[in-house]
């Protein structure tokens, strides 16, 4: 019998409630939805990465973000905006081998995606106040999950990739005759670049690097303003993360479809 006057001692029992959760709302829906989207992206990008075709529309300067920069000798010349300094690779190294580890690492160690896949794919926990199935838990204190601390380095590299994407997008204002032109693909590619820019700029590591690490904002007014700006974007990091996932897939799919001749690009000018 326990009373309120009992002295506290170690390892006293919790309330004996057997149910794993007593939640009555639809708590399974968000992790299932997010998990399905993540799996779709993993499958889609793997297939596209190893396809090795239909990644560029040379006439209009469209290049899929999954293959940019294309630096290997066996790239289509129109896709190599930065030359082809690297030799041709065997079939198991895809043409997107330069960029894919960077963007995959950036998203894998991202604080938003960590929440998403820990909940959806690893069930740790699948939803708040729902008992997780794992017997043991050490979090991100040891290998391999301690590598999540490398997020900032992927952020630095992803910022370079974003600059390359902007450069590629500038190439899309081109018509078939080589003069100024614009089509639906240009629009899709620029929307994708904006979504990627929103995702990269709202990143927690970016917020930390620009000002979050400071102890005295008053001594660094410029960095403080940057931090305020990024702090406004930061709450939407998850939104940009999911939107940019879809825009990358949509951009790649559009370029694949036009390149393969499934339909032709809708041209606005030239």
């Amino acid at each position: 019998m326990t009373t309120t006057a009992m002295r506290p001692s170690k390892a006293r029992p919790r309330a004996a409630i057997a149910a794993k959760t007593l939640r009555t709302d639809k708590w399974r829906t968000p992790p299932l939805t997010i998990g399905a989207i993540l799996l779709l992206f993993i499958v889609y990008s793997t297939v596209r990465l190893f396809m090795g075709r239909y990644y560029v529309v040379g006439d209009y300067g469209y290049l899929t973000p999954l293959y940019s920069p294309c630096l290997f000798k066996d790239c289509v010349p129109a896709a190599s905006h930065f030359g082809q300094p690297l030799p041709a690779m065997p079939f198991f190294i895809p043409l997107g081998a330069i960029v894919f580890p960077v963007v995959a690492g950036f998203r894998l160690t991202c604080y938003y995606y960590r929440k998403a896949y820990y909940r959806s794919l690893w069930l740790s926990p699948q939803a708040c106040a729902v008992q997780e199935p794992h017997k043991k838990y050490t979090g991100e204190t040891r290998f391999p999950l301690i590598l999540q601390n490398s997020h900032r380095f992927f952020f630095y590299l992803a910022a370079v990739v974003l600059a390359i994407n902007v450069w590629d997008a500038l190439h899309t204002f081109r018509g078939a005759d080589g003069h100024f032109g614009m089509g639906l693909g240009t629009l899709i590619i620029w929307i994708n670049v904006l979504a990627l820019a929103g995702y990269t700029a709202s990143c927690h590591a970016c917020r930390h690097a620009f000002g979050g690490k400071l102890k005295h904002f008053s001594k660094h007014p410029l960095r403080y303003r940057m931090w305020v700006l990024i702090s406004k974007l930061n709450p939407k990091h998850g939104f940009y993360a999911m939107v940019s996932l879809w825009t990358v897939m949509a951009t790649d799919f559009y370029i694949m479809a036009v390149s393969a001749g499934w339909f032709s690009d809708l041209r606005f000018f030239n």
């Binding site: 604080y111 960590r114 909940r119 740790s124 900032r152 979050g212």
Partner: peptide
């Protein structure tokens, strides 16, 4: 390091403190 950023603390906070975004992640970065 045990925290894996699943943000349940932020979800339940009745004072709407952004525990994960404004405290835990900045501390992890530090």
């Amino acid at each position: 390091g045990y925290c894996n950023i699943t943000k349940c603390c932020t979800e339940v906070c009745p004072e709407h403190i952004k525990i994960t975004d404004n405290a835990i992640i900045p501390m992890k970065e530090r």
